[in-house]
Design a protein around this nucleic acid. Structure first.
Lengths: 114, 114
DNA sequence: ATTAGTGATTACCTTTTGGTAACTGATTAC
DNA sequence: GTAATCAGTTACCAAAAGGTAATCACTAAT
């Protein structure tokens, strides 16, 4: 009988972390969220507030964020059809997380470029 | 003269967040870090502790993590050349961040699948 | 010399992601 | 009817990420 090599499995409890990273990870999601928090409401407004962000990606990300209940989408009838995006109360629960990411990042820059 | 459409720019202060996500984002980095925190020291050990992780990706991620001072790499001479990976004290500063990601993720699962 | 184990690297291919630009459809001002 | 604006969508292509398998260098036992 071969003795099986020992190594510790460590996959449990990883799903929630993965979930969070799916929601706020990637290049644009936090930027878009912050843009909306800052008061940008309309598609073009958000688009213009984030250099290099394409309509295609914005469109996709907004859908994701709506599914994740971070924003609401309301279509207003009238002169040029306008859509209003607004942050949910729930989205604010991310502020603590984002602050942690920010703080660690600030410190890390110091550490790495020291 | 056209009046320029107003929209709030919001790019400042985003770099540190991006930095943090570069360090811990992606599919594998947190898993690898946790594996090493759990006590796995050697390449094969880490590899086997994380199903579906390929040598190529592990190799790349370990390099990144060394650059970011999250782990140390020591080559030990002797019967089959062994390399030991160990977590740095500095890596532990990530625990708070990861805990926040975890907590938010747990709550988010409840929110979304409710 | 051959075989085996460890820690990788490389070449090759597939999948995913992202960017560009054109286009739709609605409405209103001219 | 023409142009312009808003909110997207679609088709097409390019770049990045990821997976598989083969290979390499080193050592040690046989």
């Amino acid at each position: 009988m071969m003795k099986k090599k020992e190594h510790k499995e460590c996959m449990s409890a990883l799903l929630p972390i993965r979930d969070t990273l799916d929601v706020i990870g990637g290049k644009w999601k936090i930027l878009i969220l912050i843009s909306i928090w800052e008061g940008n409401k309309h598609f073009r407004e958000i688009e213009r507030s984030i250099p290099k962000l394409s309509t295609k990606v914005l469109s996709k990300e907004l859908k994701d964020m709506e599914e994740n209940k971070l924003i609401t989408r309301t279509v207003l009838n009238g002169f040029p059809v306008r859509t209003e995006y607004a942050p949910t109360e729930y989205s604010k629960t991310l502020k603590k997380v984002i602050l942690e990411l920010y703080n660690w990042g600030v410190n890390h820059r110091k550490k790495i470029f020291a």
